[in-house]
Structure formats: structure tokens, C-alpha cells
Design a protein around this nucleic acid. Structure first.
Lengths: 126, 126
DNA sequence: ATTGTCCTTAACCGATCGGTTTATTAACTA
DNA sequence: TAGTTAATAAACCGATCGGTTAAGGACAAT
């Protein structure tokens, strides 16, 4: 399917039903049927959503008799968070680049918002 | 398309090419052609990826003559980060046996100033 | 042994995705 | 005036997605 884990994680999070399932599971474990109940779709649909979450490593199922108990396993989520944090760091640093770009392009003309943030270091492209 | 913004954001992030584009743009603005150059795909493909990022609100293009200068606009990213943070909080509250793992990973990852834009309420471990 | 419950698998469907090639629009250059 | 460059639009393609219905599979209850 989606071989790189980060892509799989983001793809899994890109569906509101799956996010709702995760939010539900964050409140405690649940069976597939319990998870399906609030949604206006069939059980196989929920089952497939759970498979997506499982393949992404975000949930795990423990068999308990004829039921499957679903629980959160959030390791890949940490990768997603890390990526976003890192990206945000770059983005914040990029305010300097925006300044530089506008200055280079327009000379003086534009009202460059020099924001409150004391921008960190300047790193060039690499 | 993808009407809810959070889904659009995660969906946009779910593609490695688009993440690479964002990482590239985090280092500074670039034209479409410059963005396309390192990739083994055609210009229209990159153009479509940029459109996805643009519709998700992650990137904006300023026309500069016949070129389009692409830059980051990270507002929706904050929503994604917030969702992950919130989710992680719930998750941490329920599964404390992974707390140590998180702490280790996060501590090792970034000497990042967790700047401004504080979702003010947290930091449990500090 | 039969029946019912919980869930998955299989097959199918239309829509979207990620890419291509081929035009087309817009702006620069000679 | 052409001709070239930068990027998008359009049309198309196979693959995947998100859902359905219908058919099992494993366990529980009687």
C-alpha cells in the first residue's frame, strides 16, 4: 500500500471517520461494533477504516473471544508530530527568508512585517 | 474535493513529494520550475502537487512575471499540530507506559525552541 | 448440531489520485 | 513580429479509496 510510514500515518489521519475513531479510542478501548455504532455506515466500512489505522500502526486489535478489542498504539503518531514540529521550526525560520526575498525583489517598496518573533538563525538552501 | 480543512491538510501531507516540496520551501521561496527540478517527474505533476498544497492552504504563489514564486503559509499546519497535540495528550493520559518513550524521543529529537504560538495550556513534563 | 453474534473477506462500484502527453496561456527576448 | 520560456489546463490512464452488498469464519449459546 503506502510503504513509507509517515505517509501512511498522515493518510490515515486524513479521513474524518478515522480521526473520530482515534478520538473515541483515546477515551478507552472499544470493540469494532462499539466503534461502528455512532457512524452512519456499515460494519465492513468501519472494519476497513480500522484496517487502515492498523496498517498505519495507530491501533491494534486484541482478540477477545468473538470480539476484537481495539486500542491505541501511537508510536507512528510521534513521527508525525515530530515532522510537523520540525517543519514548523523551519517555517518560523523562514520569516527571515521572506524578508530577504522581499527585500531582494522589491528593493524597498514593500511594508515588510517584521514580526514579533526574533527569528532564529539564517540557513540557506540545502 | 476534501471539504474539511483538517482532512485537506493531512491529505496534503500524506504524499512524500509534497512533503519534500514543503521542506524545500521551508528553506526559502522557489519557483515552480526550481521546485520541480530535483524530482523525476514532469512539470505538470509538480504543478498539480502545488495546487493540492495551495488548496490546503499550505503554500501560496505570487506571480512574478512569467514565474510563480511559491512560499509557505502555515496556518492550517497549526490546526494539524493542534489536533496531534490534543490527541497526544489524551493518549498520554490513557497510556502512561509509553510516556517514557515519548519523553526520550522528544528530548533526543530537537533542540527546538518550542516557540510562541503556544497552545498555552500544556507542558506537563517540565 | 443448530443457530445467532461479531467481525472479516470478496467482489463490485463510482470517485478521486498521481502521473502522463498534448495543448494553451502569458510573459520575456531577439 | 516571431520565437522561447514558465506554468497551467485538458484529456486520459491505471491504481487506490471509501463505500456498498453478499458471503464466509470463528466463537457462544441453546
Amino acid at each position: 500500500m503506502d510503504h513509507d510510514p509517515l505517509s501512511a500515518t498522515f493518510a490515515a489521519l486524513a479521513d474524518p471517520t478515522r480521526r473520530a475513531i482515534l478520538e473515541r479510542l483515546a477515551g478507552g478501548d472499544a470493540t469494532v461494533g462499539e466503534l461502528a455504532e455512532p457512524f452512519a455506515m456499515t460494519l465492513p466500512a468501519i472494519s476497513k477504516h480500522l484496517s487502515v489505522l492498523e496498517r498505519a500502526g495507530l491501533v491494534a486489535k486484541d482478540r477477545d473471544g468473538q470480539r476484537r478489542n481495539c486500542r491505541i498504539t501511537a508510536t507512528p503518531l510521534q513521527s508525525a508530530t515530530s515532522w510537523l514540529e520540525e517543519y514548523r521550526r523551519h517555517w518560523e525560520a523562514n520569516l527571515d527568508h521572506l524578508d530577504a526575498y522581499l527585500t531582494r525583489l522589491q528593493g524597498a517598496a514593500l511594508p515588510v512585517r517584521r514580526t514579533d518573533i526574533p527569528t532564529a538563525e539564517q540557513e540557506k538552501k540545502s
